[in-house]
Amino acid sequence: MKINTIGKLCILAAVGSMATTSAIADTSGKRIALSNNYAGNSWRQAMLTSWDKVGSAAVADGMVAAADAFTTAENQVTEQAAQIQNLILQGYDAIVINAASPEGLNGAVKEACDAGVVVVSFDGIVTEPCAYRIAVDFKQMGKVQVEYLADRLSDGGNLLEIRGLAGVFVDDEISAGIHAGVDENKQFEIQGSVHGDWAQDVAQKAVAGILPSLPEIKAVVTQGGDGYGAAQAFKAAGRPTPIIVMGNRHDELTWWKEQKDASGYETMSVSIAPGVSTLAFWVAQQVLDGKSVPQDLTVPFLEITQDTLEESLANTQAGGVANVEYTLDDSIAVITGN
């Protein structure tokens, strides 16, 4: 498994020199909540599992008093805004947000800040200046897919784009990166685009629906959680399997290894690690602890190559996603690196 730094930082580079953290101020009475807008795919489930693992340990160790997670029933801005307002009323000291909209939650976020609540957004970030933001360069995550294909397919060809959840910041950014990559590599042309909602079953149905109208497809560019579904749709349609960029899910990596062993099939896989939620947790704790933290932090995405496939698959739980979880020391290293 390769962590692509994109020239920003290496997560663990400074950890060796920071094996002993600075003395911790008393955050044992502080309560941190996670406000999550969506949980309908394996990435979000892995993200919540990582949060619970690290948060529960922090509570057991007396680092904080609570690390509760709340997920809205629908991916709706109004519902998540109401959830955040409720968390303010419940007296949480910090709210970590995976947001349904970059701008739509800004009013609720400003209310939290005005009430003295620390707000940390990640993955789906918010633009309200008072909040902290932890982001991957999602545009580069989209662009790197096309750059990989340019190396593999010198003559180019037709592409199918599978997007994520409509209206979400992450979807817009990755798609923008894909289109920027195509603009720089004119040998490729996007022949169709569907929303797969970062879920295999949704992606399979969406691809199956558009395939009859498409010419030969040389490659599929994706956002994560959709590669295996795309492969099944091409198979069901009796069409040749193109190069499908994967998204670090266990079923995708398993399918890729099966194809690699059978025919030498080659591709790449890239996604943000769901354990970024644990970095957001520790950032909130550090701010509550009075530490100086940059308002904006950039972290790398995880890239799996043909050579690292077997190792990555062996370290990925069935039904899960290739992951990196953050300790307090790791998080201090990220903060320092930024």
Results as ranks from 00 to 15, higher is better:
C10M: 05
L12A: 13
A13D: 14
A13G: 11
A13P: 01
T20G: 00
S22A: 14
I24R: 13
A25H: 05
T27L: 04
A33I: 04
S35C: 02
Q45E: 10
M47C: 08
D52Q: 11
D52S: 08
K53R: 13
G55C: 07
G55Q: 06
G55R: 04
V59E: 10
V59W: 03
M63V: 12
A66W: 08
A67Y: 11
D68L: 10
V77G: 06
A82F: 00
A82S: 13
A82M: 03
N86R: 12
N86P: 07
Y92C: 01
A99P: 13
A100S: 14
G107C: 09
E111W: 02
D114A: 06
V119Q: 01
V120M: 06
F122D: 00
D123E: 04
I125T: 14
T127D: 09
E128D: 08
R133Q: 14
I134R: 10
A135T: 14
V136D: 05
V136M: 08
Q140H: 07
M141S: 12
K143E: 14
Y148R: 02
A150D: 14
D155K: 09
G156Q: 12
E161V: 11
R163Y: 06
G164L: 03
L165W: 06
G167T: 15
V168M: 12
D171A: 14
E173Y: 03
A176D: 13
I178N: 01
A180Q: 06
I190R: 12
S193E: 11
D197N: 13
A199F: 02
Q200F: 07
A203T: 04
P212K: 13
I217G: 02
V221E: 15
G229V: 05
A230Y: 02
Q232M: 12
Q232K: 13
F234I: 07
A237G: 07
A237N: 04
A237H: 05
P240I: 09
T241L: 15
P242N: 08
R249Q: 14
H250I: 10
D251G: 07
E252A: 05
W256A: 11
E258A: 11
Q259Y: 03
Q259T: 04
D261Y: 03
D261I: 11
S263W: 00
G264Y: 01
Y265H: 06
V270K: 00
V270M: 04
I272Q: 12
G275T: 01
V276T: 15
V276M: 10
T278E: 10
V283E: 00
A284M: 02
Q285N: 10
L288Q: 07
G290M: 00
K291E: 10
P294I: 01
T305C: 10
D307E: 13
E311D: 14
L313E: 13
L313M: 07
A314M: 08
Q317L: 08
V321T: 15
N323C: 05
D330F: 12
S331L: 01
S331Q: 02
I332E: 10
I332S: 07
A333G: 09
I335C: 05
G337L: 10
